[in-house]
Design a protein around this nucleic acid. Structure first.
Lengths: 270, 270
DNA sequence: TGATTAAATTGATAAATATCAAGTTTATAA
DNA sequence: TTATAAACTTGATATTTATCAATTTAATCA
């Protein structure tokens, strides 16, 4: 029940009409130029005609249910994916049969870029909630990029951004204390919501505490305790997955984020 | 003294002639097709004529001395760089005026891919020893990629590999214990040497314990103790920067690396 | 709906790692 | 070369975090 609300909250920046149940099905017919996320994945300078060409190669898959896989480890790479709504996690298997969470993917973010090199997916992608994605067959994209310089440029830019983001996260994981990690994580999520036009001070986390802990290299109990501590200190309100950030500066202090870096990432969207 | 030997050891997979002192100066004149690393940065299917075009846009900088910067944080992005010989570290500044090491770069590896998106370098790059690099002006590269499909493809592949590698490192940093991190780190370095035709069981680390500790999110003392422990257990010999890996399986065990993943990365080169 | 399972929290204890403080070795420069 | 500085190592202690165990709360399903 509240999960459904969560979905809606996160799905579209502004929802004018009442499309609650059928929005996902309708979404499968929406073209690139109408996609509210298109400035995140397309060159802004691309013109109508070229946009149509791009639109033609994109397949809109039907929505994934929670825990459905978008792709599995070792699966053949054919396409990259853009999250339209919902969210996913990517993870790799480890020796002891555990999973190691490698990332979370919000609307407008790409998946599969790490698979181009080897032609197969080095990690699996699983939906954290009801999620819809666009599928972009890579061969077609490459061919199209060959004839559209701005598309080639945008592709390289997006891949660069992915590299940049990964390095940001390495900085995050390199941090020593548990509270610095969790704080940096929450600020990162907050920023990504902001870039998508959602509130940066109040949002729902679609991933479990377990996933967060795994991702941050901590024990679940530690993550839980940190949430409690942040609340006691009044810098956040957290009721399960619903998070309100009260004191962003305090969090930045804890995370050890320098304003320079923060400003840079704030202007990430174009 | 031994530093010079280190350089030579690492510099060329097979050195036929005695070029010891002048090798770096000579290197500045070597063309792409003669570069022993070219299969790492160029499409193997590129033909002689095209190779020349690529060769024309590449500038060979004169060698960096130890501690020289290749670029600084916030510096304007114009080119990507390929390490020809030597090595560098990249790092970002943190709030408290410290540096956070984000990566090490060995011969054949690229630098600057994370700067394309924003047009400026999010981290600084500093030579760990005498180091020479090729500079590839990005605008020219993009234009050339526009007319050479295989080059575009290779560029995308390389960027994908960078993303993949970063995620591998995130796995590394996500590991909980100090010994798992250090072991995974050494195995990663070992593998990268192997891919470049050097010994994977014996090599010199060009970075300090401090850099390693910083990179792995550990205290220097802890790293030092882990080196000692690994030696006591006989799985490595370490005399300062000179490392011999005696028991690779034990290290993989400690690092928690699954063979699957290891096999995959082993075939990374091409 | 209630029963069952999963997720999250909290507490107590053990283990790992950071920190502080020397001391040693190696590198650098006068 | 010797003097000085830097890098590395080692030990003792304090802090942090993981682990184990129990409980509470929320989610799922018959």
């Amino acid at each position: 029940m509240s999960e459904t609300e969560l979905d809606l909250e996160v799905k579209t920046p502004r929802r004018k009409t009442r499309q609650n149940k059928i929005v996902d099905i309708l979404a499968t017919k929406v073209a690139c130029k109408e996609c509210s996320l298109h400035q995140l994945c397309l060159p802004s300078s691309i013109d109508g005609n070229d946009l149509e060409k791009l639109d033609n190669i994109i397949e809109r898959k039907r929505p994934l249910k929670r825990n459905d896989h978008l792709f599995q480890v070792g699966g053949q790479f054919t396409s990259i994916y853009v999250v339209r709504s919902g969210s996913l996690k990517t993870y790799s298997p480890t020796v002891d049969g555990q999973e190691q969470v490698t990332g979370f993917h919000l609307p407008g973010e790409l998946l599969g870029l790490d698979a181009i090199g080897k032609g197969m997916h080095p990690c699996a992608a699983k939906a954290l909630e009801t999620t819809s994605v666009c599928e972009v067959p890579f061969e077609n994209l490459e061919l199209l990029a060959q004839e559209l310089p701005t598309l080639q440029h945008q592709l390289l830019r997006l891949m660069s951004k992915e590299i940049f983001d990964d390095q940001e996260l390495m900085l995050l994981l390199g941090k020593k204390t548990a509270e610095a990690r969790l704080s940096a994580f929450l600020l990162s999520i907050s920023l990504r919501f902001k870039q998508r036009g959602f509130s940066s001070s109040e949002f729902y986390l679609s991933m479990s505490r377990n996933d967060i802990a795994n991702y941050l290299g901590l024990a679940v109990e530690t993550v839980s305790r940190m949430f409690t501590r942040f609340q006691e200190d009044g810098i956040i309100d957290a009721e399960r997955k619903h998070i309100v950030i009260n004191d962003r500066e305090a969090m930045q202090q804890i995370a050890g984020i320098n304003e320079c870096c923060e400003d840079m990432t704030a202007e990430e969207t174009q």
